[in-house]
């Protein structure tokens, strides 16, 4: 192997890379929060409503699930840019990730809602709860328990696809790595470290999720 590895510049850039990793986590977490809220809404709309609103929700879910994440990113970046809506790279990544998360989570939630029998809603209604109360106190807690693991996977997925941000000029972990790599041409070394950082992030998320699930689902 005729290649001299140079790790020193990479180590020097490590603080910046770790800072960028925080940005990755931030945008992924934010897109998850928004994705969960919108996904819940989409799945409820698809189950209870008719007409154009339902059609819109179905289109959203199917588009998010049947086109590549990179395509979605390009659409919100270059596509909207072409019609005069110029977003910052941060917003492009956040919107594309949220769009994607919401679509996938809506499908998961639908499965979760199906698993809670209708009789429970009727029982809680006959105990005097309003429909809203029945949903927020009886149904949604159970649904969240069912979709907890799919949600964890979606969070990991959000972190992984946020790496595509480097293609629209977003300086999260991958974008920052790309920036340093093209400055020094030490492409392999930089991306190797970045791969390690991503691996650690994913392990931390999975570890935290399993710790949290032990606390949340004690009963």
């Amino acid at each position: 192997m005729n290649y001299n590895f140079h790790w020193r510049p990479v180590m020097k850039a490590l603080p910046e890379l770790l800072e960028a990793a925080l940005l990755t986590l931030q945008v992924a977490a934010l897109s998850m929060v928004l994705g969960v809220l919108i996904g819940l809404g989409l799945s409820l709309i698809r189950m209870h409503m008719k007409g154009p609103v339902r059609w819109l929700a179905t289109t959203w879910v199917e588009l998010a699930r049947n086109t590549p994440a990179l395509f979605q990113l390009f659409f919100f970046g270059f596509g909207l840019g072409a019609v005069g809506v110029h977003l910052t790279p941060y917003l492009i990544v956040l919107i594309a990730l949220t769009f994607n998360n919401a679509g996938y989570l809506a499908e998961n939630f639908r499965g979760g809602f199906k698993a809670v029998p209708d009789t429970q809603i009727r029982a809680s209604r006959s105990l005097g709860m309003t429909a809203f109360q029945a949903y927020t106190r009886i149904v949604i807690p159970q649904v969240l328990r069912i979709v907890y693991y799919p949600m964890t996977n979606q969070m990991v997925w959000a972190v992984l696809i946020s790496s595509l941000g480097m293609l629209v000029g977003f300086r999260e972990l991958s974008g920052e790595t790309q920036f340093f790599a093209s400055k020094t041409f030490r492409i392999f070394e930089y991306f190797a470290i970045t791969a390690v950082i991503y691996y650690v992030i994913v392990k931390i998320i999975l570890g935290a999720a399993s710790l949290l699930s032990k606390r949340l689902f004690r009963y």
Binding site: L160, F188, F191, A195, V202
Partner: peptide
């Protein structure tokens, strides 16, 4: 590892690693 590292990073890494081993 292949499930925990973004695919784009894997591609860039491998594409740059392959010439090193000829």
């Amino acid at each position: 590892i292949f499930r925990s590292v973004p695919l784009i990073i894997q591609l860039v890494l491998f594409f740059n690693f392959a010439p090193m081993i000829g």
